[in-house]
Write a protein that binds this DNA or RNA. Structure first.
Lengths: 127, 127, 127, 127
DNA sequence: GTGGTCTAGACCACC
DNA sequence: GTGGTCTAGACCACA
């Protein structure tokens, strides 16, 4: 797996790492049971501190995406563990609301938004 | 206009203020030329620091939503000023990408997302 | 509130802090809306690093016990947020099972365990 | 005897082994003088490292559950050796205190806890 | 070798 | 002032 981190972005590094791992799961580049690099390995690979990786891994563990296996290190959890649930959908709704509302204020219509989403989904699936 | 701030939320207060003003514009509760409360007035109304309101107004000014006029105070700009543009759409795309990708990883399909957006748009328009 | 930390214990410092705060909530020494000391303040008070306090606060936040209020700092959440739920009870069951089973192997009977629990509950409530 | 190890759990493997052997004693599946598999045999049986089994056996020996005999291998000790004693009860009390206190903070009452314990004891005895 | 914990010291965003 | 993030370097338990 290949992670690309933007060191000057205003989104925290550990968040970027989370996003990219989640993206890899969405694209089926990472499947249940797949091993992730060790905390120290990944840290030195992308040139950040091991605590930063640790924080990302722990956040993903908290969300059910990863589990820590005593033998294999960190592995991808089974799908059921991070399947959508009411709590998640509610949070998603709140975040989506902000984006959609501003896009409407700026004059984007339903089709424009729909095209965006379709495009994103196609990119994720089609890879 | 009525602003409701959630002091507990982890999104900054000034960001919440921005969102709610933008939402009011999307709902046509605020139209071109409408005056907004003064920094001091709004600050004491919702019980936050002057700087917080100032920061929100300045951010909205930077995005073209508001203009600050020494005479008339703060007023809503004309639509052209904050109309969607490539820069904005690119930023929106990036943010949307994060939400959509995670929702896919969690097993939500196109229809679920589409329903969310439709619901949000209906609420904003229909109000 | 008074926290007493055992620096040589094998249970992590941040875990001890969590336990004591939870205990204070159980004893009603801490109620909804009560403010906790700042991360830095508590850290210097009990002579540990601020990251250790931070980790404890974040763990309690994740469990619904605390929330971060932009004005007042860290405060105790409302009871509903950390009320018992099936997930928690299942975890509790697993932990309890270990304790009870060993106590049985060592010859303790129902009454002995029951007395322990009664005693603990009385101490917590009666204060 | 059948040991089932959860490689994913965050409780150490050697601790899990201890718990299961203690549980077997509580259930009278293992009685005084019964032989346990050799370190090597058990290690290869459940697919873990020799050191892990060794650590578990040594911990149980330290608690009086097992005795290691050069001739007969590892056997279950007599009941008196691991009978409850003040030191153990004190330790149990400390651990129980953590569980009970948190459950109270989360609103569980005496009956809920009591039912848990009764259920656990019934499962252990009745099996 | 792995992850978990702790320390010390730094910068930033928010209020 | 607050909490949030990152770095650097250290020790320990586990396997």
């Amino acid at each position: 797996m290949l992670l690309s981190i933007d060191m000057v972005s205003d989104t925290p590094i550990y968040t970027q790492i989370c996003h990219q791992i989640i993206r890899a799961i969405a694209m089926n580049h990472l499947c249940e049971g797949d091993e992730l690099p060790s905390v120290r390995g990944l840290a030195s690979d992308i040139g950040v501190n091991l605590h930063t990786i640790n924080k990302a891994y722990n956040a993903l563990k908290g969300d059910g995406f990863l589990i820590v296996n005593r033998r294999k290190g960190v592995v991808v959890n089974n799908k059921a563990a991070y399947a959508s649930n009411p709590t998640y959908e509610e949070a998603l709704m709140r975040q989506m609301e902000v984006l959609v509302t501003e896009s409407m204020a700026r004059g984007l219509d339903y089709n424009s938004l729909n095209n965006m989403i379709t495009k994103i989904m196609r990119e994720v699936k089609g890879d």
